[in-house]
Each structure stands twice: as structure tokens, then as C-alpha cells.
């Protein structure tokens, strides 16, 4: 009698905990489904709203008119890529050097600690603060005004901590036996890094750089006060007079990225402006998705080439 009671109580408890387990699993599945639904619907919504605009004649090839509310977004598209390239030209060597220092040379002690704390601080600063600093330092103090170069440096500050961490991780993931082999043959760490470690880490570095490029491409807050909120009305791509304000390649002219363009005109009520906003957003999304896919493909292709022959 007593025995069967215990069994009954035990069974009830087991039954209860099994039920809890099932409920928990159900709730978690629902959460995951919700998150996936949000991501997918977001992407689809933007594309659905904007892809049509991309095929409007002139949207991708004409300059904008009436402060961005009419016309195309050709210059914004160009400026976005130009800013990205300038940013990578500045930030890539610095991040590479910084990462190599931290992985290979950094002596133990306060100097290294200060340096890595500085990079960490930079990574957590709001981009608006970086933008304010860039504005004061480059636009005002250096007298560069609203210019692509100010914007590129602000983006560099935003990009360096990301890149440094990615490259650092990639270098650390190269088996230490590769480093040992080089050093044991009387080579310097510098040669080891240049000729063995960086080539071996290249797939991971490329993946990381392209991914970070996607982030830079969509950044806007740091650009508002540095590269400005407008592109020149007319750009001359054939001009090589780099001092001319209409020369497309002049890094001291103002410029406006796609993301800034969206921010500038999102509140405009006219239907044409709204079409432009969604078209720009769709273009931005497509670029970011491309960067995402490209980073994986490039990394995998490089890795395959290295391990194969």
C-alpha cells in the first residue's frame, strides 16, 4: 500500500517534469521561429518595397535633384564605395600592423595592456561620439570641412577595432608549430609573419575584412558631421584635377553615403521621395547581403586553394 503510493507520487513527479520539458522545448522553438520570421520578413519587406525602384530608368545612373527627393542615387552609390575603399586603405594596414604587434611582439606588461584597452575602448564608443571627434578634429581643427577624407578617417576609427580583432584571431588560429618551424631555422618573427603566418591566415582575414566592409558600408552616424549630408550637384569622373570640387576623386570634397541619404530624406512625404528611400534601402541591403555572401565564398575559395595544391 505505502509502496504503491510512493510510486504514484514518483510517477506524478516524473510526469510533471516531462511535461515541463515539453513545454520549455515548445516555447524555445517558438522563440527561434519568431526570430527567424523577423529576419526573413525584414529582408523581404525591404526588397519588396524597393527592388522595383532599382529598375526605374536613371535611378542608378542619375544624380539626385531637389536635395535628394528627386532623381537618382548614382553619386551616393559611388561615394559609398569610394568611402569604403578609402577607409580600407587606411584601416587595413594599421589593423594588420596592430594585430601582428599584439600577437607576435607585445611584451607582457603595462604597455600592451594599455594598447589593448585602448582598442577595446574604441570598439565600444558610440559611433556618434567618433563622428563628433572626427568633426572637431578633421573638419574644424584641420580645416578639411565636410570631406570624404574626414568621413573615411571616422569610419577607420570605427573599423580598426573590428579588423584588429579579426586579424588577431586569424593569426592566433595558425598552428604554433608553423611559427616554431620558422623560428627554429633562424628566421625572424617579422619574416615568419610576412611569409608564413599571414598567408596561412589569409582565408580568415579576407572573410573578416569583407564582413567588416559590410558594416562600414551601412554606417551613417559617424558620417553626418564628417563627410556631410550632400554630394556635389555634379561630379566629373574624368577629371584628374584632384583639387577641383567637382572632381569625383577629390578626397577633400563632401560626399554622401547611401545610408546617410536614407536618413536625410526618410521623412519626406512626397511619393517620389519615398520610392527613392526604399530603393536606396533595397540597394543597401543587397550590397550588405553581397558582402556577407562574398566573404564566405572568398574565404572558402582561398582555404580550398591553400589546402589543395
Amino acid at each position: 500500500m505505502g509502496n504503491s503510493q510512493t510510486t504514484a507520487a514518483q510517477e506524478a513527479r516524473i510526469e510533471r517534469s516531462m511535461r515541463n520539458d515539453r513545454i520549455a522545448t515548445g516555447v524555445l522553438t517558438a522563440i527561434v521561429a519568431l526570430v527567424m520570421a523577423i529576419v526573413v520578413s525584414m529582408v523581404l519587406y525591404i526588397l519588396a518595397q524597393g527592388v522595383g525602384q532599382l529598375f526605374q530608368p536613371g535611378f542608378l545612373t542619375e544624380a539626385s535633384r531637389a536635395n535628394g527627393t528627386e532623381g537618382g542615387i548614382a553619386y551616393q552609390l559611388f561615394d559609398s564605395f569610394y568611402l569604403l575603399i578609402l577607409t580600407l586603405i587606411i584601416s587595413l594596414p594599421i589593423s594588420l600592423g596592430g594585430a601582428v604587434f599584439l600577437v607576435e611582439y607585445a611584451p607582457e606588461g603595462p604597455i600592451t595592456k594599455i594598447a589593448s584597452t585602448a582598442i577595446e575602448t574604441l570598439s565600444s564608443l558610440p559611433s556618434i561620439v567618433v563622428g563628433m571627434f572626427g568633426f572637431l578634429m578633421f573638419s574644424v581643427n584641420f580645416g578639411w570641412g565636410y570631406s570624404l577624407i574626414s568621413g573615411a578617417i571616422a569610419l577607420t576609427m570605427f573599423n580598426i577595432p573590428i579588423l584588429t580583432r579579426v586579424i588577431q584571431q586569424a593569426l592566433e588560429d595558425v598552428p604554433s608549430s608553423q611559427r616554431d618551424a620558422c623560428l627554429a631555422m633562424g628566421l625572424t618573427r617579422w619574416e615568419t609573419t610576412l611569409h608564413v603566418l599571414i598567408p596561412a591566415a589569409m582565408p580568415a582575414i579576407v572573410t573578416g575584412v569583407v564582413l567588416s566592409a559590410g558594416r562600414v558600408f551601412g554606417e551613417a552616424a559617424a558620417l553626418l558631421f564628417t563627410s556631410g549630408m550632400s554630394s556635389p550637384a555634379r561630379l566629373n569622373f574624368l577629371s584628374l584635377n584632384f583639387a577641383s570640387p567637382t572632381c569625383a576623386w577629390n578626397i577633400f570634397r563632401p560626399g554622401e553615403s547611401l545610408a546617410v541619404h536614407i536618413y536625410k530624406i526618410y521623412g519626406e512625404g512626397s511619393p517620389e521621395a519615398q520610392h527613392i528611400v526604399w530603393g536606396t534601402a533595397a540597394l543597401l541591403m543587397i550590397c550588405v547581403l553581397l558582402f556577407n555572401v562574398l566573404s564566405r565564398i572568398a574565404g572558402k575559395a582561398l582555404a580550398r586553394r591553400m589546402t589543395a595544391e
Binding site: 616554431d180 618551424a181 608564413v196
Partner: peptide, 20 residues
Amino acid sequence: NLYELRKSIGMVFQQPNPFH
């Protein structure tokens, strides 16, 4: 000069570690 020295005193490791 440890770079010259390591040419004279070679080392072979536990795991085969050829370069890529």
C-alpha cells in the same frame, strides 16, 4: 646572434609541420 645560431643548431618537431 640567435638567427645564425639556429642555422647551426637545427630542430625537428613532434608534429610534422611543413609550410603551405
